[in-house]
Design a protein around this nucleic acid. Structure first.
Length: 807
RNA sequence: GCCGCUGUGGUGGAAUAGGCAGACACAAGGGACUUAAAAUCCCUCGCUCGAAAGAGUGUACCGGUUCAAGUCCGGUCAGCGGCACCA
């Protein structure tokens, strides 16, 4: 036998075997216990996979392979989130149809993933750009529309000047486009919206009981931004009332002015009463021109204009107070109007200082000469009439009840979450299946006509008017109204990339179903996803969107679980060798294809898992990976020391290895579940070192070792197992350990005097405390140290150490 | 500002539930084998003093609790990620 492990041949051989035999195809055998392991499907970019892809994929592959050996019917699928801008931009630039670009990219991705030896069920592959798939994306949209959760609205949207496309708030990062880093401005457009806000409360509440990392839950809760308070009506001199939302109704006595958003309809309605319309108009224009980002960037200096000609009345004390417009009040949150309490709100304080407005202390505890006092926990009400002397929380309840009684206000909860802007003016997305008829309004395309196919166009270029390229296609646009049969026009916007990924995990359950997004039986059996691993960057995007869609599908009876994912984990990023994010511009990109060519897929897998804590970022190292290669070469070399005769130990392990093997089984079994792949591998390395220390390995031991290593390094273990046992390792059962055999008979413990280790002694692991202490004290080093001293305390921590405290 | 997280050798990182800090690797140094190199094998490897035995010291910093603290508590500093005029 050649001593060097020929990974190129062997890995290819097993990949071919798995492929030809559909080894990892999940059968719809509903009698077996199921396990659904899911990883986020990739966007098949033109660059192929990068080193970040194999990390989560290998991790869940390890879980999937282990689960199969544990007897589960495992669904571990893969697909392509293939609609999207980069493909479209590439298509425009190179004059190739985006569908062809997609097909090429997908083929490359698939080949690359297969070369890693991932045990995906390739018979269940899905592609969001496949009409048989997006038919159901459109179908879900229609259900949303029918339930009033999809609506069209004229609104200021985030407009990327380079992509010429509307972006969701979530896609705007620091004022620039998440994808191209170009400027994002505000532009008024008519957009399809999804009412995710209607699910805001449930999206928070149902997080309870889900096995998600706290940082993910906290991220979503923050993003949804729930608050409770009250709405209060302020009468004004126009005769109209202005309604405000406040989380601090207790401070109502301290409200010395009001501020409304520059876009507030009050300004239009009462324009005739206002004496300084020119000034107001100038301010409105200035803030309209600012992007959301600019508006929040200059947060430091408060600006605004006082309305001349109208005033408001504070409902609790009847005081006349001025009304301002300022862009620190957003029309999109609450009522677009606030009562300003400068004594107890930092922003109001700044504004009051800038405009020299009165500041009244109504909560005692701080120093409002210096800054606003905002602490709700310790403050006591003052200067507040019937609220005086109450703690803040009691005052909130009392004033809210009072307002309700007087008909001036009511309790109210609010969310920062906004509805989901669902329109994109691009070609490469799912057409929105809606027809606009002058007579009937927005009419859904009949479900029997789905999929509404993406038509062929001459050019995919977005138009300068901001319309989708589909708008230039008269044969597509002009149609008849499904309701009245009259002339009508099709919607030409397409869906955002998040649409297809909001339900793809359902399609995997039954990917070829032509009559439903998946059969009821398949969904009932496979859902929910038992373990979903993916990136932190999707906390407020994909993860939130898909939870929303799933809840909707639950409400209309399509799925039986109100939550799609039972358990969510997140992996850390792989950085370049310089500790920076890998990027072409930094020149620190390492190509997985090259790594596989040089070291093999098993080594890549092993190193990706060994590199560090799975949940944290880790820098790649071209030299550290060699350790994993060496390990596998040494595993291959085990055939030199196999004891084939093996006559006297049957199913048992040898005396020298029994404990370390049981310990390793326990460690690997538990560490995989806890995402501690790095220490699981370390334990296998330790075991291998022990085996080489002993100098021989029995077939039973070899078998156990290979099974433990198999999820991490499936190719080499499949080969060695087949050679040694003539069987397939993926058909074996996972190995078990005996707790009683995880401890050595004799163990070494530390002996401390006053908390410092002064000696080590060997004791039987089951020794009694008294015997251990006597042994410890009889040690020369210890006897010397405690001689003549008074023993204050003696402790024995079983199996660990002895501590003798002396004075 | 708010929320979440992190800080351990030359490097990546270990350390159960408060119980021997540095597992497992990488790099480095020394040695064996080799004409030589690669590969492989053996040894050393936190820091200070010491030839060694050994002693002292050490988990960002300051303090506390404890027989015992990387781990728990209080405070400080530094860094990372997310949100950010949300009333």
């Amino acid at each position: 036998m050649n001593d060097r492990y020929d990974f190129k041949t062997i890995e290819k051989k097993w990949q071919n075997y798995w492929e030809e035999n559909d080894t990892f195809h999940a059968q719809n055998d509903y009698t077996k216990p199921k396990y659904y392991a899911l990883v986020e499907f990739p966007y098949p970019s033109g660059q192929g996979i990068h080193l970040g892809h194999p990390r989560p994929y290998t991790a869940m592959d390890i879980v999937a392979r282990k689960r199969r050996m544990e007897g589960y019917n495992v669904l571990f699928p893969m697909g392509w989130d293939a609609f999207g801008l980069p493909t479209e931009n590439f298509a425009i630039k190179n004059k190739i149809h985006p569908a062809i670009v997609t097909r090429n990219n997908v083929n490359r991705f698939r080949a690359q993933l297969k070369a890693i030896g991932l045990s995906f069920d390739w018979l269940r592959e899905v592609d969001t750009t496949d009409p048989d798939y997006y038919k159901w994306t459109q179908w879900i949209f229609l259900q949303l529309f029918k339930k009033g959760l999809a609506y069209k609205k004229e609104m200021a949207v985030n407009w990327c000047t380079s992509c010429k496309v509307v972006l969701a708030n979530e896609e705007v990062v620091s004022g620039v486009c998440e994808r191209c880093s170009c400027e994002v401005i505000r532009k008024v457009k008519s957009q399809w919206m999804l009412k995710i806000t209607q699910y805001a409360k449930r999206l928070i509440d149902d997080l309870e009981g889900l096995d998600y990392p706290d940082r993910v839950k906290a991220g979503q809760i923050n993003w949804i931004g729930h608050s409770t308070g009250a709405e209060v009506d302020f009468s004004t001199s126009s005769g109209d009332t202005l309604r405000v939302y406040t989380t601090r109704p207790d401070t109502l006595f301290g409200a010395t002015y009001m501020v409304i958003s520059p876009e507030h309809p009050y300004l239009v309605k009462w324009e005739s009463l206002l004496l300084n319309n020119a000034e107001i108009k100038a301010y409105q224009d200035a803030s309209a021109r600012k992007s959301d980002f600019e508006r929040t960037e200059i947060a430091k200096d408060k600006t605004g204009v006082k309305l001349q000609g109208v005033t408001a009345v504070n409902p609790v004390n009847g005081e006349n107070i001025p009304i301002f417009i300022s862009d620190y009040v957003l029309m999109s949150y609450g009522t677009g109007a606030i009562m300003a309490v400068p004594g107890h709100d930092t922003r109001d304080y700044e504004f009051a200082k800038a405009f020299n407005l009165p500041i009244i202390e109504v909560v005692k505890g701080g120093n409002i000469e210096v800054e606003a006092f905002t602490d709700c926990a310790t403050g006591i009400m003052v200067n507040s009439g019937f609220l005086d002397g109450l703690p803040v929380e009691e005052a909130k309840a009392k004033i809210t009840a009072w307002l309700e009684e007087k008909g001036l206000g009511a309790p109210k909860e609010n969310f920062k979450l906004r509805d989901w802007v669902f329109s994109r003016q691009r070609y490469w997305g799912e057409p929105i299946p809606i027809v606009y008829c002058e007579k009937c309004g927005f009419v859904p395309v009949p479900e029997s006509q789905l999929p509404l196919m993406l038509p062929e166009v001459e050019s995919y270029m977005p138009t300068d008017t901001g319309e989708s390229p589909l708008a230039t296609l008269e044969s597509f646009v002009n149609t008849t109204c499904p309701a009245c049969g009259g002339a009508a026009k099709r919607e030409t916007d397409t869906m955002p990339q998040w649409a297809g990924s909001s339900w793809y995990f359902l399609r995997y359950c039954d990917p070829d179903n032509m009559g439903a997004l998946a059969s009821k039986e398949a969904l009932d059996y496979w859902m929910g996803v038992d373990w979903y691993n993916g990136g932190m960057e999707h906390t407020t995007l994909h993860l939130l969107y898909s939870r929303f869609w799933h809840k909707f599908l639950f409400d209309i009876g399509v799925v039986k679980n109100k939550e799609p994912y039972l358990k969510r984990t997140s992996h850390g990023m792989i950085l370049g060798e310089d500790g920076q994010k890998m990027s072409k511009s930094r020149g620190n990109v390492i190509n997985p294809d090259d790594v596989i060519a040089e070291y093999g897929a098993d080594t890549l897998r092993l190193y990706e898992m060994f590199i560090g804590d799975f949940e944290k970022t880790a820098p790649w190292s071209q030299s550290s990976i060699k350790g994993c290669k060496r390990f596998l070469d040494r595993v291959f070399g085990l055939h030199h020391i196999i004891c084939y005769t093996n006559s006297n130990n049957g199913d048992e392990y040898s005396e020298e290895l029994t404990v370390v093997i049981h310990k390793t089984i326990k460690k690997v079994t538990e560490d995989i579940e806890a995402l501690k792949f790095n220490t699981a591998i370390a334990a296998l390395m330790t075991l291998l070192n022990e085996i080489y220390g002993v100098g021989r390995i029995s077939l039973t031991e070899f078998r156990t070792f290979l099974i433990l290593l198999n999820p991490f390094a499936p190719h080499i273990t499949s080969e060695l197992f087949k050679k040694a046992f003539g069987k397939f390792i993926h058909q074996q059962k996972w190995v078990e350990y005996d707790m009683a055999l995880c401890v050595d008979n004799e163990i070494e413990i530390a002996v401390q005097v006053n908390g410092k280790v002064r000696a080590k002694v060997n004791i039987p692991s089951n020794a009694e405390q008294g015997d251990v202490l006597n042994t410890a004290k009889s040690q020369l080093d210890i006897a010397r140290l405690i001689d003549g001293k008074k023993i204050v305390k003696e402790l024995y921590v079983k199996g660990r150490l002895v501590n003798i405290v002396v004075k």
